[in-house]
């Protein structure tokens, strides 16, 4: 699906994001919750590259996030795959790929719904104390984080995925180069 260099860049972006999240953003606690850069990754990748790219980035970002979270391993990967795919399928078609304002709005909405979905899945697999009033604050803070980080993350993905030539198994990009431009 991706060229070799793209994989290297994607790995770098996800690892750096994981470090930034764990070392810096976890310290920025607003009303008991913190922004979630790792969720912004699949949302923006989905808007930028479509459903399949969103799902892939969601899986790898989720696995990376799970390495430092106390929640069950694989939970973030499971949730991010669906979010990346859903955003790539629905949000991108609703808001388009071209305008930053639409992308930022799509990212914010993606993060809001993504957080709620994450909470529902976590509660479904038996994690206690998730569906309470704090979830509203968490959703708002993560949505705000999406708003703030959308543009820098879009630019980072544009750089990382700039050499991507195919966006689906066995399907070549249409002439004109990358879908991300």
């Amino acid at each position: 699906m991706f060229e070799d260099l793209t994989w290297l860049k994607v790995t770098g972006v996800i690892l750096v994001s994981m470090i930034v999240q764990d070392v810096l953003l976890n310290q920025i606690v607003i009303l008991g919750s913190h922004p979630d850069l790792m969720l912004v990754l699949p949302v923006t990748a989905g808007i930028l590259g479509g459903a399949e790219v969103g799902a892939f980035m969601g899986f790898f970002a989720g696995i990376a996030a799970d390495l430092v979270l106390p929640t069950p391993f694989g939970l973030s990967a499971l949730v991010f795959v669906v979010i990346g795919y859903a955003v790539g399928s629905f949000v991108a078609s609703a808001f388009g790929h071209d305008f930053y304002s639409a992308r930022v709005l799509g990212t914010t909405l993606g993060c809001l719904f993504g957080t709620l979905f994450q909470a529902i899945v976590a509660a479904f697999i038996g994690q206690p104390g998730i569906l309470n009033s704090q979830l509203i604050v968490t959703t708002a803070v993560v949505g705000l984080g999406g708003l703030v980080f959308a543009i820098p993350v879009f630019r980072t993905w544009s750089w990382a995925l700039s050499d991507m030539r195919r966006f689906s198994f066995g399907t070549r990009m249409p002439s004109g180069g990358s879908a991300l431009r």
Binding site: A51, A55, I63, F73, G74, A77, L78, V81, Y85
Partner: peptide
């Protein structure tokens, strides 16, 4: 193809969650 990708990634994720237990 996209749905196949989604299905494969979901299966892997569910397997990982299950293995964690």
């Amino acid at each position: 193809n996209q749905r196949l990708t989604l299905l494969i990634l979901l299966l892997i994720s569910v397997t990982v969650v299950t293995l964690d237990y």
